[in-house]
């Protein structure tokens, strides 16, 4: 009895934790490498090199905040930021407004809901490049919308956003909304469908009108859906690049430049890596500014419950 229990004890010694279920750990190596090397490592690398004077090749010659000072005194960057702000604010408001309105209309138990939904959503399947090129053609001043309206009799009609620096961002906005509102509508519709039918019955019994029910009861109930939509739109706006390249390529002049394009131009075209790194770090900072309050609302709030 004593000998067997000793044998048992040896055989059943607590295994080293790292080697327990080794397959699960081996299979997770690609994930671990991606998380640590690319996401953490890559981001940290870029932030560190944004404090250097790297030009054609990255080198660790630290120059403090020089790149950032140069960045914020470059007209092109300032225009990029301003453009993104205009595009961002308009896109945010209009996407939420259109997305919610469309979803609410589709939620009124209408006929052909599936058809309308397909029509509103299909642009989301298309790339920004295709979107940009399609709208570039429609907004073409010589053959597109402007010319068609002029021929219909309004000779003085002018709508040429792609060649007018003052309104070029709105030309992009029309295309961006066309591509992206369907997604938000879908999310909003899912949110509306998640609301208990009894809420509507209760509102009806209480004699509250449809619009008032939406504004006072439904929208406040959909707060988490709105927050998700907000984060989606915001993270999409910051990444805005393909659409601009395809539709205007930053033109006319530099009137429709955006930060993502600035970064790529300096990194891969102008061979001024330090500027690219500094600009991309600024993009990272802006994402953090957006995401931290969201994460706090989303996850910090949950813990309190």
């Amino acid at each position: 009895m004593t000998t067997t229990s000793q044998d048992d004890a040896r055989a059943a010694r607590r295994p080293i934790r790292l080697f327990r279920n080794p397959m699960a750990k081996i299979a997770s190596i690609p994930m671990i490498l991606t998380a640590l090397v690319v996401f953490v490592g890559g981001t940290a690398w870029t932030v560190v090199y944004s404090f250097t004077d790297s030009r054609l090749l990255p080198r660790l010659n630290f120059v403090g905040l020089d790149q950032y000072e140069r960045l914020w005194s470059t007209r092109r960057w300032l225009i990029s930021i301003e453009n993104l702000a205009i595009y961002g604010i308009c896109s945010l408001i209009l996407t939420l407004l259109i997305g919610f309105t469309l979803a609410a209309m589709l939620d009124r138990k209408i006929r052909g809901e599936a058809v309308f939904r397909s029509i509103f959503l299909y642009p989301f399947a298309l790339s920004f490049v295709v979107t940009g090129l399609a709208w570039q053609w429609i907004l073409n001043p010589d053959f597109g919308l402007q010319e068609v309206v002029r021929r219909m009799g309004w000779e003085g009609f002018t709508f040429d956003p792609l060649n007018n620096p003052d309104i070029v961002m709105f030309g992009l906005l029309i295309a961006g909304l066309w591509q992206g509102t369907g997604l938000i509508m879908c999310i909003m519709l899912a949110g509306l469908r998640g609301i208990d039918e009894d809420i509507w019955k209760a509102a009806k019994v209480d004699g509250i009108g449809t619009v008032k029910t939406y504004v006072r009861i439904i929208i406040p109930m959909m707060r988490p859906v709105f927050i998700t939509a907000l984060v989606l739109i915001a993270s999409g706006i910051i990444k805005l690049y393909d659409l601009v390249v395809a539709q205007t390529n930053g033109g006319p002049g530099i009137a429709s430049e955006v930060p993502a394009k600035y970064v790529i131009n300096y990194m891969f075209r102008a061979q001024n890596l330090g500027q690219g790194f500094a600009a991309s770090t600024m993009m990272l900072v802006s994402v953090i500014i957006i995401l931290v309050p969201w994460a706090y609302l989303e996850f910090g709030g949950k813990k309190r419950d």
Partner: peptide, 13 residues
């Protein structure tokens, strides 16, 4: 602690 089944220590099996 330990778990024995049919006289065998199976705690880590």
């Amino acid at each position: 602690g330990q778990i024995h089944i049919s006289g065998r220590n199976v705690t880590w099996e």
